[in-house]
Simulated assay, not measured.
Amino acid sequence: MTTLLSPEIDTIGEMTERCDRCGAAAKLEVVLTSGGDLAFCGHHANRHRADITRVASRIRLEDGFDWAGR
Rank of each mutant, 00 (worst) to 15 (best):
G35F: 01
D10F: 03
R54I: 06
S6L: 12
T3P: 02
H43I: 06
F40I: 02
T53Q: 09
E29H: 04
H48W: 09
R49S: 08
A26E: 01
C41T: 08
A56N: 03
E14C: 14
H48S: 11
D37S: 09
V55T: 07
V31F: 05
D10V: 08
A24K: 09
S34V: 12
A25G: 06
G36P: 03
D37M: 13
A25N: 01
I9E: 06
L38E: 07
R49P: 08
I52M: 03
G13E: 15
T3Q: 08
K27L: 11
I12E: 06
H48C: 06
T11P: 06
D20H: 08
I52F: 02
A56D: 05
R54P: 04
F40K: 00
A50S: 11
G36L: 12
I52W: 00
L32S: 04
C19E: 03
D37N: 15
L5A: 13
A45W: 01
R54Q: 14
G42N: 07
R18C: 10
R21I: 12
N46H: 08
K27C: 04
P7I: 00
R21E: 15
C19N: 06
T16Y: 00
G13K: 15
L28V: 07
A50P: 01
H43R: 15
G23K: 08
T3R: 14
A56K: 02
H43W: 09
D10R: 11
F40N: 00
R49M: 04
M15K: 07
A50F: 02
E17T: 04
G13N: 15
G42Y: 02
C22Q: 14
A24F: 02
L5Y: 10
G23C: 13
E29K: 06
R49D: 03
N46A: 03
G35A: 09
V55E: 11
A56L: 07
A24N: 03
T53H: 07
T53P: 03
D10A: 13
R54D: 11
A56C: 11
A45R: 04
F40T: 01
G35W: 02
C41V: 11
N46C: 09
T11E: 10
L32T: 03
C41H: 00
D10C: 06
N46G: 01
A24W: 02
G42E: 06
D51S: 04
I12G: 04
G13V: 13
R54E: 10
E17P: 00
N46M: 10
A24D: 04
T2F: 01
T16W: 05
V31E: 15
A39F: 05
P7G: 09
P7V: 11
F40C: 05
D37G: 05
T33Q: 10
A39C: 12
R54G: 08
D10Y: 10
C41M: 12
V55S: 03
T53I: 10
V55K: 12
R18I: 14
L4E: 13
H48G: 13
G23M: 10
